[in-house]
């Protein structure tokens, strides 16, 4: 079964002249760690937003697992994203006025579905923080963390509630090579445990060897690059 299945997907912004994303047929098998690379401005983030149901394609089908995103109403897509996805940004991931614990908790609070999957939310959050080496910072203001620590909190938030699909948009861009690898190990370790699929976007190709599969954006999308 495919975790992501795209068919004849076409998307452009109101202001763009050509298709920003134009994918005939592409899929990511469930449980795969997939690395998506491509130069800046080619449309990687846009693709992730489509997968997350934040942008709406003009044509084609978008399947996430057994759900066809393209048929959902905007409200249903927001709900779906909250319930089934984990999302990591490249930086500035956290809500500055919530502490570490609350930032992770946020993902559960936004989704009754995720919350109900986790038997004891508090214990689970603490466990995740521990496995990411962040236990000591549990009640710390996130503004007092280093970038790497912030990204680990963001990862914990994306992992909580056992999302089927984790989308990561250059989450390691602010880290040095060693920390980047460590970050990815943690991601893989947790994702394997949850049997989640990971789609990891970056233009930094030095990371690709750690993934199951590498895809260049230009290979799948024939829009302008």
């Amino acid at each position: 079964m495919a975790a992501i299945l795209l068919k004849n997907l076409q998307f452009k912004y109101p202001s763009s002249k050509t298709w920003v994303v134009d994918i005939k047929d592409w899929q990511v098998p469930a449980g795969e760690m997939c690395f998506l690379s491509g130069p800046s401005g080619c449309g990687k983030s846009t693709l992730l937003e489509i997968l997350a149901g934040i942008q709406k394609e003009q044509a084609g089908e978008v399947w996430i697992g057994t759900t066809e995103m393209s048929r959902l109403s905007p409200q249903e897509r927001d709900r779906f994203r909250a319930d089934h996805l984990g999302y990591v940004f490249q930086s500035f991931n956290l809500i500055p006025y919530l502490n570490v614990f609350e930032n992770v908790q946020l993902a559960l609070e936004m989704s009754p579905h995720k919350k109900q999957k986790v038997a004891s939310p508090r214990a689970k959050i603490d466990e995740l923080l521990r496995s990411l080496g962040m236990s000591d910072f549990r009640d710390r203001a996130v503004t007092e963390l280093s970038i790497g620590q912030q990204q680990r909190v963001a990862l914990a938030r994306a992992l909580i509630g056992e999302p089927e699909l984790i989308l990561a948009d250059e989450p390691t861009s602010a880290l040095d090579y060693d920390h980047r690898e460590k970050f990815l190990q943690l991601l893989f370790q947790e994702a394997r445990k949850l049997k989640s699929t990971v789609l990891f976007v970056s233009h930094d190709r030095t990371l690709e060897k750690l993934f199951d599969r590498t895809v260049a954006f230009s290979e799948i999308s024939k829009g302008r690059t």
């Binding site: 997350a52 905007p74 927001d78 994203r81 319930d83 999302y87 500035f92 500055p96």
Partner: peptide, 16 residues
């Protein structure tokens, strides 16, 4: 704006 984007990525609808 950043905060709004984060909430949105976590599933908050524009209405929310």
């Amino acid at each position: 704006r950043r905060e709004m984007s984060i909430l949105r990525s976590l599933g908050a609808s524009p209405m929310k």
